[in-house]
Design a binder for these strands. Structure first.
Length: 1053
RNA sequence: GGGCCCGUAGCUUAGCCAGGUUGAGCGCACGGCUGAUAACCGUGAGGUCACGCGUUCAAAUCGCGUCGGGCCCA
């Protein structure tokens, strides 16, 4: 049985009710089970990091995922949908460190690595549970009971296995490299973990003394004075010309060498008064120079290093055109160093402090704080040409925000750069939404791909499964726990540090195999998700059946993140991309397009939105606000619009229920096929529209044009269903007997609502379910018990009638135009008009049996459609053309103009048409005019009010007749009695007693003509209409109709 | 310096891939409707579709360039 719903759409109540229903009925599990054996759809959830709180962006992300998966499931796909969690890495270490007040690695070691790891694990698991609850509130149907977690042994093995593969493919390498280094976390960090923002640093110009030339210097510039002790070379651009100048300043004279184009600005900065050019040097000649380190006496490590000049393309025409090279502290420096066989000198330790190699003056100093010491020493050595401050973008550790430094360290690398071309090839095979996400953005990123530093000198992560022999250097990469057991004969219950650190065995050379103490870069964890989630490598079956993934979707930040890391890991192990299609979505920003951040205080929590509006409204909003790949500017106002739209849908649903219940609507009556002959044109129209909607949504969904889906649905609900069909169908629901016309309307509404609930199910799953439960399960206990078990409603082509749809939209336009015309002449819609004339300009207007609809909606007695170009009889207006009248009639011109005002325009036109001239008279005098002296304009006659529509004009005849007036007054009275019924809170079927007293006799007479009609419309069993009547009953009210006082009393019978 | 995206009414946006009258919502003003009604409808004001050049019969849409914003890289 269908139950009546009362009150407004209350999303919170509805959603908690549905959530409970799903839980009790195990709906999610049953939905997934029923699709087993269907075509496979392998989705991999990009694992959110277990921060404990979801934010709007993660909410949007999961809503997209859920909508796609629900859609696929309704399309009978067997969906693989394990949720995933990214649980290792520095962010959690930092959180745990904070909770204990730890400041560095030593504190952790003192506390105990095993306990620290345990805390990290507990922390991650707790956060995961919190976040799961938040995602569930959104209605995200993923497999929350069995998610993949990067901290599980099985998952660790997937990473191990992958590294082993990389090694087999000769893509694993240990080497000295300059890496981004966080001196606080004391670990290498990936390029993608570096955050840039403005920082003010020193900007210094330094003089490097040229060997063998008195008082002569090469001038370099740097923003990192602390790297000067590590300087081993100078780079120059091979195409530049350099100058040697003698320059004077207070207290001395120097010979300086720098790029010719930069001499003047540099000397100005150095406050030199004057200079003379001594000669120029080519880059070739520059390279013959050698120089002495400016702080040679302070830095013992510099002894024995030969300092020369080298050519490098990366040198730009900025500053001095001579670049300070410290291969131990810069990426390009390092590469140049490798190429030119320079010393890789790095007198800085992992803690960011100088080592002994930097000399006793600097040892132990934190490099960022040593800048001033270095500058002072350069100054004392007379090697400082100038110093200043400069604000520029500088990299920071994304976790602890410490400015990073570059140092040369020994790390493990995957040789991704070797795979660049193959990767690009794979990228082109993937389907990207939007297309440019792959062809432009991602390809560009891959073009710049460098080798991937996968080692981190930390604790909470997947341990590197690399063991090396302490004696012979033999290297083994272990792929699984079983393999490790075999090697060492021991069994580990947990593969994390520190237990795994203790595992050793004897090398064939007799030496000891010891694990490399590093852990994986956390990006490597999620990189293996697509096979780890299939329990590979511990099981192979699932992997064979499902891999690679059909679909993934993440934000555009993942271009350099998960899209990339997955591709990299997959290339080294499988030589192909691990996913077939990618939807790249945007970021959630605030309403002004700014990032949501704590410092601005503009963060919106999804929880807050759900509390205020409910999950469905949040879902519909984020899906529909804009194209998925664009950034979403969150707006509460827009959210309210979405809420309004769904509320109207709710009202539309609610509208028919009382009538259906009253008429004992049942499964048999709901069967639309019984009414084929009784369907009205408007019924066929809305059925056509809902099927067109299914077609449109299907098409948009195939292209992941999610915003278009919500837009189509919203248009359908507001325009077609609420504003139009329900208005049309209303009077039919008031018919009292079991009339086929009424039943056909019910069946139509029923069909539309049921279909709509299915179309909306992937996007607003709660609301759809609630409506489905009532309408479908309520009538038919054998129906699928959830809307999410239904099949996706394919468009029924036999119901789609594009001609009818086109005609209806014309009818709507004409109807709007006629409202417009009525408004112009002050004729309310409640008052009928005798006729409406439609005058198309060019194309014929095809009303396709909708004349009846048009009559009803325009409240008119007759509709006339003219042929294209034809018009109703028009009044003709004339206007004088002064420019033409003046020269001919001269002094009497103004009389001609006066004459035109009173002349009959039609007659004048006739004369002009026939003879080319017309005679006018003014105060007894006659004037002749020619056609050019007058301009004619057509004007609708007084009784016709006109308005334009897309195909021409609509003319409404507003002439009143007693019949029309009588109807108008009766409708005024009906409406007021209905209003009073409402006030009395009467039920639709209740009968009343009513008395209407009208103080004006003529109007009373008009109303009396419709007395019976009024009585039946308001269900009045007793009805009096007259003058000076006694008002009796519960409710008495005075009204004013068209300036006349009307007193009405209403009471229940 | 390079790559990508974006720039449409006061605000938020659709349309752009596939060229053919810029469409909506919010807000504002006026009017209407009333058996869904703490709703709803109509009308009005408000647009150099960032700017310039080009292709074309035709450009918000395609191409080139400029400016502004964002993200990423260097």
């Amino acid at each position: 049985m269908i139950t009546e719903v009362t009150g407004q759409y209350n999303a919170q109540d509805l959603e908690s009710r549905i959530r409970q229903l799903w839980e009790e009925a195990q709906t999610y599990r049953k939905v997934r089970e029923m699709r087993v054996g269907g075509k496979k759809f392998f989705f991999v959830d990009g694992p959110p990091y277990t921060t404990g709180r979801i934010h709007l962006g993660t909410a949007w992300n999961k809503v997209i995922k859920d909508s796609v998966l629900r859609y696929k499931s309704m399309n009978c796909f067997e969906v693989k949908d394990r949720a995933g969690w990214d649980m290792h890495g520095l962010p959690i270490e930092v959180k745990v460190e904070e909770s204990f007040g730890f400041r560095n690695k030593k504190d952790i070691e003192t506390y105990g690595v095993d306990k620290f790891i345990q805390r990290c694990k507990e922390f991650a698991l707790r956060q995961k549970d919190d976040m799961t609850a938040q995602f569930k509130i959104l209605g995200a149907w993923l497999d929350w009971d069995d998610p993949y977690m990067t901290l599980k042994n099985e998952y660790l093995e997937a990473a191990w296995w992958t590294l082993k593969k990389a090694n087999e493919h000769n893509l694993l390498e240990r080497g000295l490299r300059v890496v981004n280094w966080c001196p606080r976390c004391q670990t290498a960090i990936a390029d993608s973990e570096v955050e840039y923002w403005d920082e003010t640093d020193y900007s210094i110009y330094v003089k490097f003394p040229v060997e063998g030339e008195e008082n002569t210097y090469i001038v370099i510039w740097t923003t990192t004075p602390w790297t000067i002790p590590a300087n081993v070379a100078v780079a120059v651009n091979p195409t530049f010309e350099y100058s040697k100048v003698r320059a004077w300043k207070d207290g001395g004279v120097d010979v300086l060498i720098m790029a010719s184009d930069l001499v003047e600005p540099v000397l100005k900065i150095g406050r030199y008064k004057d200079y003379e050019l001594l000669g120029t040097l080519s880059a070739e000649e520059m390279q013959k120079l050698t120089y002495t380190h400016p702080l040679l006496d302070l830095v013992p490590g510099q002894k024995g290093i030969k300092h020369g000049v080298h050519a490098a393309d990366f040198v730009t025409a900025e500053n001095t055109g001579c670049v300070h090279i410290a291969p131990g502290h810069g990426l390009e420096d390092y590469e140049l160093g490798m190429k030119k066989h320079l010393e890789i000198f790095c007198p800085v330790g992992g803690d960011g402090r100088y080592t002994e190699a930097a000399g006793e003056k600097y040892v132990g100093l934190y490099v960022k704080e040593a800048d001033t010491d270095v500058i002072r020493d350069l100054e004392e050595h007379d090697r400082l040409l100038a110093q200043g401050r400069l604000t520029h973008r500088y990299g920071h550790c994304w976790r602890c925000k410490t400015p990073i430094i570059f140092i040369a360290t020994s790390q493990w690398f995957l040789r991704i750069s070797d795979l660049r071309d193959k990767m690009l090839d794979e990228v082109s095979k993937i389907t990207w939404y939007p297309e440019w996400a792959g062809s432009a953005r991602f390809s560009d990123w891959i073009n710049n791909a460098r080798d991937w530093c996968i080692s981190r000198q930390r604790y909470w992560g997947i341990p590197l499964p690399i063991w090396t022999c302490q004696k012979c250097g033999h290297l083994e990469v272990i792929g699984t726990a079983a393999e490790l057991e075999e090697k060492c004969g021991c069994k580990l219950s947990d593969l994390h540090r520190p237990d795994v650190d203790a595992v050793t065995w004897e090398c064939s050379c007799g030496g000891k195999m010891v694990r490399s103490p590093d852990v994986f870069d956390v990006w490597f964890d999620s990189a293996v998700a697509s096979w780890a989630t299939l329990h590979f490598p511990s099981q192979e079956k699932e992997f064979q059946e499902w891999w690679p993934a059909d679909f993934i979707t993440e934000g555009h930040d993942q271009t350099r993140g998960w899209f990339y890391s997955q591709l990299g890991a997959s290339m080294v192990s499988f030589g192909r991309a691990p996913y077939k299609s990618v939807l790249m979505h945007g970021f959630t920003l605030d309403d002004q397009g700014r990032k949501m951040s704590k410092s601005i205080g503009n963060i919106v929590q999804p929880e807050e939105v759900v509390q205020k509006f409910g999950a469905d409204i949040l879902r519909a909003y984020v899906l529909g606000a804009n194209a998925p790949w664009e950034d979403l500017h969150f707006s509460w106002e827009a959210l309210e619009n979405t809420a309004r739209m769904l509320n109207i849908f709710w009202n539309a649903y609610r509208f028919a229920l009382p009538y259906m219940i009253l008429d004992r609507f049942d499964a048999e009556k709901a069967d639309l096929s019984r009414y084929e002959k009784s369907l009205r044109a408007e019924d066929r129209w809305i059925l056509s529209r809902v099927n067109s909607l299914a077609e449109d949504v299907t098409k948009s969904m195939e292209e992941y044009q999610l915003h278009r889906i919500i837009r189509s649905i919203s248009d359908f609900i507001l325009e077609d269903l609420s504003r139009w069909y329900i208005q049309l169908v209303r009077p039919r629901t008031w018919i009292e007997q079991d009339d086929p016309d009424k039943l056909a309307a019910y069946a139509t509404i029923y069909e539309v609502l049921v279909k709509l609930s299915r179309i909306m199910a992937p996007f607003t799953p709660f609301l759809s379910e609630a409506i489905y439960q009532n309408l479908v399960v309520g009538l038919n206990p054998n129906a699928p018990p959830s809307v999410h078990m239904c099949e996706w409603p394919k468009a029924d082509a036999s119901r789609i009638d594009k001609r009818l749809e086109a005609s209806m939209s014309l009818v709507r336009e004409i109807s709007e135009a006629s409202s417009n015309a009525r408004q112009k002449s002050g004729r309310k819609l409640r008052w009928p008009v005798s006729d409406i004339v439609i005058a198309p300009a060019k194309d014929a207007v095809d009303l396709d049996n909708l004349e009846f609809v048009l009559k009803g909606q325009t409240n008119s007695k007759k509709i006339t459609v003219l042929s294209p170009g034809e018009k109703p009889q028009m009044d003709l207006e004339m206007a004088p053309v002064h420019k033409k009248i003046g020269p001919v009639h001269k002094g009497e011109a103004r009389f001609v103009v006066e004459a035109l005002k009173t002349a009959n325009a039609a007659l004048v036109k006739k004369q002009l048409d026939e003879s080319g001239k017309a005679g006018l008279s003014y105060e007894g005098k006659n004037y002749d005019i020619t056609a050019e002296m007058v301009q004619f304009k057509e004007k609708p006659p007084e009784n016709l009010s006109a308005a334009e529509f897309s195909k021409g004009f609509v003319y409404v005849n507003v002439t009143l007749t007693p019949e029309l007036e009588s109807e108008g007054y009766s409708r005024e009275i009906i409406r007021r009695i209905q209003d009073m019924r409402k006030e009395l809170d009467l039920r639709v079927e209740d009968q009343i007693r009513a008395v209407v007293d009208i103080e004006s006799k003529p109007i009373l007479d008009l109303a009396l003509r419709q007395k019976d009609h009024i009585a039946s419309e308001v269900r009045a069993a007793e009805f009096e209409l007259g003058l000076g009547l006694e008002l009796k009953g519960k409710l008495v009210k005075d009204w004013e109709i068209e300036g006349v006082c009307v007193r009405i009393s209403v009471d229940r019978k």
